[in-house]
Write a protein that binds this DNA or RNA. Structure first.
Lengths: 208, 208
DNA sequence: TCAAAATTTAATCATTTGATTAAAACGTTT
DNA sequence: AAACGTTTTAATCAAATGATTAAATTTTGA
């Protein structure tokens, strides 16, 4: 048969990547053992080095994919010319709450691995372009000019939106023990926030 | 026999704790080597085990102190009967921005180490008590009753406040490369947020 | 079919790492 | 000073860990 498209889903290489993603996301680079990944993938340890040379190289592939996926979503929304700025806020809040609900380890994984920027990751990401050249950026400028938004720096805007959206997931371990909150309750709370965050952002941005 | 008070500031035990705090905060438990701590403290490696038995026991002491310190500040503010809820928001934003500016590694350290709650830390903290029995909690209930605050759950209130305050520090590595922001600019931005966050929170809480 | 190439496996290596030990150095008490 | 307890040091240990190797097995292509 063709060797290229031979059920890539279950190829050894893909199994290792999938396992690496799972373990790295959950435990981070330093706490992850290559043997953990091999076991999770159900493969011989040596295959990890056979396909990816080293733990570090495998990690760099995973984190680049993870961060790219995270940013891409926002990029799409920010560059949609058909939606208002209000609608963009709704979409970002809603999309990220759904996304992080499915992959709850991603925010703390990304932020903790970037803390010393060891992988030089940030340089590889065109986030600045994404924001500064975005339709959102222009819409924000217009809204400021028209006095509909008080704070002129779009950075505050995006940071507030992401903070309100992402921070609860980061604080979840605390909430669960401290507040006795279970997964269902947390999930319900985040669903509420899909509607609350756009309302809050709107109110904040008009405030002065 | 006697050894109680002999310049505790520079005692070996204290030097090790201080070094451990520095290294653990910066790199996290898994990435920290006991030799890193010994070197930072300028002591022989064996002394770490002599005074603290194991890396893990030393870590548990450090993280408990760190989180306690972090929570204590909020507890004081939330239980001050002489301040309004608006003033409490100002104080928490201001205190934490100052605190984290001095110790920028603490938020990501706390959150990433709690992600699997390995140290069973959350159980040791009386945060639930702190919030539910606080003066703030009663003031919040009153404000809701009087219609001054729309959202009835004080959890949203505190999570929003902390999210707006802490999240920028977590995202700092991104901002620095992506936005080309240097330390001085970041610091200036956070000083602005001391004034902005109370205004924003006030507007958010009235929104509906 | 069969030889070459690719993949997989078990065994092993060299370091790293947390921890311990025995002896030396230091300080206190008598 | 001598005896005793405490602190510090250098050396070492055992387990863990990332990586490699050589052989076995499977797949590919003529």
């Amino acid at each position: 048969m063709k060797k290229e498209i031979k059920t890539l889903d279950t190829s050894t290489e893909e199994k290792i990547k999938e396992a690496a993603r799972t373990v790295f996301h959950k435990k981070g680079f330093a706490a992850t053992r290559t043997r953990d990944i091999a076991e999770e993938a159900g493969i011989n340890l040596a295959l990890l080095n056979y396909y990816f040379r080293s733990k570090e190289k495998l990690f760099n592939i995973i984190i680049l994919e993870t961060v790219t996926g995270f940013v891409q979503n926002m990029s799409m929304v920010l560059n949609d010319g058909r939606t208002t700025i209000e609608k963009k806020v709704e979409q970002i809040a809603s999309n990220y709450i759904d996304f992080i609900t499915k992959e709850p380890n991603i925010p703390i994984f990304m932020l903790s691995e970037m803390r010393n920027n060891a992988s030089g990751l940030a340089e590889k990401l065109p986030i600045k372009q994404i924001v500064l050249n975005s339709i959102f950026f222009k819409q924000h400028q217009e809204a400021v000019a028209k006095g509909k938004i008080t704070e002129p720096d779009p950075l505050h805007f995006l940071m507030n939106l992401l903070g309100l959206t992402v921070f609860p997931f980061l604080a979840k371990p605390l909430l669960q023990t401290v507040n006795g909150m279970n997964d269902a309750e947390f999930s319900k709370m985040m669903q509420e926030r899909k509607k609350l965050i756009p309302v809050w952002i709107k109110a904040m941005m008009k405030a002065k």
